[in-house]
Structures are given as C-alpha cells and as structure tokens.
Simulated scan of single mutants.
Amino acid sequence: MNRRADLLRTLAARFAAAGLDTPEREARALLRAALGLSDLDLVARDDVAVADDDAARLESLATRRASGEPLARLTGHREFWSLDFALAPDTLVPRPDTETLIEAGLEAFPDHTRALRILDLGTGSGAILAALLSEYPAAWGLGVDLSEGAARQARANLERLGLADRAAILVGAWDAGISGRFDLVVSNPPYIASTDIPTLEVEVRTHDPLLALDGGADGLDAYRAITAALPRLLAPGGRAILELGIGQETDVVALLAASGVPADGPARRDLGDVARAIVTAPA
C-alpha cells in the first residue's frame, strides 16, 4: 500500500510535469477531496497507508486533472464567498474575480438590514445570489438562467445553504417574463467573443458550458440585452452591477449610457487589477 505522504509527492511531481501552476497545492487539495481528509490528516497522519482501491480512484482523478480538467469539476464543489457550491455540467466554476461584484454590492448598499429585492441574471450555480443573500438576511432574490440544468443546480445550492425560502429560480432568457422592480440587479453574463472561444485555456473551453461563455460576435450580446432592460427592472434608487471581460469597460459603459442608466464611475478592479465590475448610478 502507498502512504499518504508518498502519494502526495507523486501527485505533486506529476502535476508539475503537466505544467500546473501550483502542483503541490493542487496535489494536496485532490488528496483531501478524494480521500475525505482534512489538512490536519495530511500533516499529522501522513504515514497512514492508503487502500488500493482508493489509490486507484486517486490515480484516475489525477489523470483527468493533469489533462486539464479543473479540480472543481473533479470534486464537484467550489468555494465562493466562503460558501460551498455544488457544480453541474451546466454551470460555470465560480471564480474569485467574481467576488468583486459582491464587494461592489456591499459598497453600494452598506445597510445589511435592508430588505433588498435582488435579481441575478444568468445565475448559473447561484453563487452571486447566494453570497448576497448571506450578507443581507432580510433580502429576497430572484435568479434567472436560460439553462434548465443550471437553474436546477442553483435551486439545490440555495436549499443546501438554507436560503431557499428567500429566493426563487426561473428558467428564461434574461428579463423575459419578469415583472416588478429590483433594488439590485447583478449579472456575470457570457462575454467571450465567439471567435475567441477556441483560444481559451483547456480548463475553460473544454469544461465550462458554452452557453455561459459565448457572448456573440463581439462578446457584447448579453450586455445589450441586459442594459436595454435595466430601465424597467431597477427600482428608484436601484443599482446594477455587471461583471466585465478584459477590455470591455468602455463598450459596456457606452451601452449603459445609451440605455439611460449610466455608470457611477470607473469599474471596480479585481485582485489582478482588471476592470471587473461596473456599477450603475442610483436609478
């Protein structure tokens, strides 16, 4: 039998050879997930033997990770805003850059006791909506996604996080069929130009759903639909926060201005100093 420490070294070496950026961290994360271990188990009990069937399962997962399948797809889970989200093939893997939207929302609405009405367009796994509901305990939210599979996963995540009684998930195209107005409209829409999809990293182009990536010929189709809908969706004083792709700030600001819902200033930047979240002025 292999010891945990031996497997950890083997995995790290394999991931390094495959060109992964943080092979030791990825090896540790995969070993934890595959064997149901804690960090303490790996440090204090690294000499424990691993059963042959567990080692075989770990080998299979390692092969998939080395070939470019994201770790979150292998484990079926991803943390976002310190919450755990289950994934489905129909949902994007939530990324740390998107937490910039949550930070911008907290800045726009500093009173956490407000009974906000929140609309999340293209909700995916429900990560943005759930994160905001966790910060505003009196808020109610509606998530919309074109994918039935994504909507189903978002409902399951909200239920598991104890937020389902303050949320609803609908299947639909952006604002179609939505009535009423909202204090906060958020979206991480598909924003990759169609011709750029083949150039994306294998983790994205092969394992993320195309529906959540493809933003049309210039990457702006979803923004056109969303910005056109904002005047009827936003309540008085309401704000919209949209995630941006690299280099899209100028175009999206122009679309917002044309819709009569201007940006409140420069986009909020993520940890990589990319203009990531554009926020509208109060409606």
Rank of each mutant, 00 (worst) to 15 (best):
R28M: 01
S259L: 04
V171E: 11
T98K: 06
S147K: 02
A72I: 08
R57N: 14
R65P: 00
G68Y: 12
L255M: 10
N188P: 04
D145Q: 10
L242P: 00
G219A: 08
A5G: 01
A150M: 02
A156Q: 13
G238S: 12
R205F: 04
A49C: 03
L116Y: 00
V50R: 01
A17W: 09
G219S: 12
P94H: 15
A13F: 02
T100W: 07
V279H: 07
R166V: 04
L170R: 15
V202M: 02
L200W: 11
H112A: 15
P137T: 00
A18I: 03
A156M: 09
L158D: 03
G245W: 10
D97A: 14
H112G: 02
V204E: 08
D183Y: 08
L119P: 04
E249Q: 13
L210F: 09
D53W: 14
E107K: 14
A154F: 07
E69T: 08
G36I: 05
L87I: 10
L230Y: 12
A56R: 14
S194N: 05
V171R: 14
V48K: 09
D54C: 12
G237P: 01
G180R: 05
V253A: 15
H77E: 15
A281K: 09
L35F: 12
A16R: 15
T227R: 11
T75R: 06
P70C: 07
V204N: 08
I102Y: 05
D273K: 04
F85Y: 15
A235Y: 09
T10P: 00
A277T: 09
